[in-house]
Amino acid sequence: MADPRFFKNLGPFTLAQICEKAGIAVPAGAEGSQAIADLADLSGAGAQHLAFFSGAKVLHEAFAASQAGACLVPLAASAKGGKRPEAPAGMVVLESVSVAQAFAVIAAMFYPHHSQPRWQQKDAISPEARIGVDVRLAPGVVIAPGAEIGDRTSLGPGAVIGPGVAIGRDCEIGALVTISHAYVGDRVVMLPGAHVGQPGFGFTTNGSDYLKVPQLGRVIVQDDVEIGSSTTIDRGALGDTVIGEGSKLDNLVMIAHNCQIGRHCVIAGQTGLAGSVVLEDGVVLAGQVGLGDHSRVGAKARMGARSGTGSAIFLDGGVDYGGAPAKPVREWAREIHALARLAKPRKQGSND
Rank of each mutant, 00 (worst) to 15 (best):
V266N: 03
D240P: 08
T231W: 08
Q288L: 04
N206M: 03
C265T: 11
V221L: 04
G200Q: 07
V189Y: 04
G197F: 13
L238Q: 04
Q270Y: 11
R218Y: 00
L273V: 08
S208V: 13
V297L: 14
C265L: 11
T241I: 09
G246I: 03
G292P: 13
S229K: 06
H181M: 08
G308I: 14
G185M: 07
R302W: 08
T178W: 10
V253Y: 01
D234W: 07
V219Q: 01
V289H: 00
V297F: 15
V213C: 01
A256P: 14
G292S: 06
R263D: 09
G298C: 02
H294M: 04
I267H: 04
P192L: 11
L211W: 05
L285I: 13
G197N: 12
V266A: 08
S276I: 10
S208Y: 13
A286L: 14
I313Q: 10
V196P: 01
L291H: 08
A256M: 12
T309F: 03
S307K: 04
S229A: 15
L252W: 04
V189H: 06
T231Q: 05
V213N: 03
A274V: 13
A194R: 02
I220S: 11
Q260M: 09
I220Y: 05
H195Y: 03
H294Q: 14
G185P: 14
G269N: 12
L176S: 11
D223Q: 11
T241R: 02
G287P: 09
R187D: 12
T241F: 01
V219D: 04
S230M: 09
R187F: 13
M303D: 02
S307H: 14
F203T: 06
G239V: 07
V242G: 00
V283K: 02
S230K: 05
G287D: 09
H195S: 15
V177W: 00
P199W: 08
N258M: 11
C259W: 03
D224T: 13
I267N: 05
G217E: 00
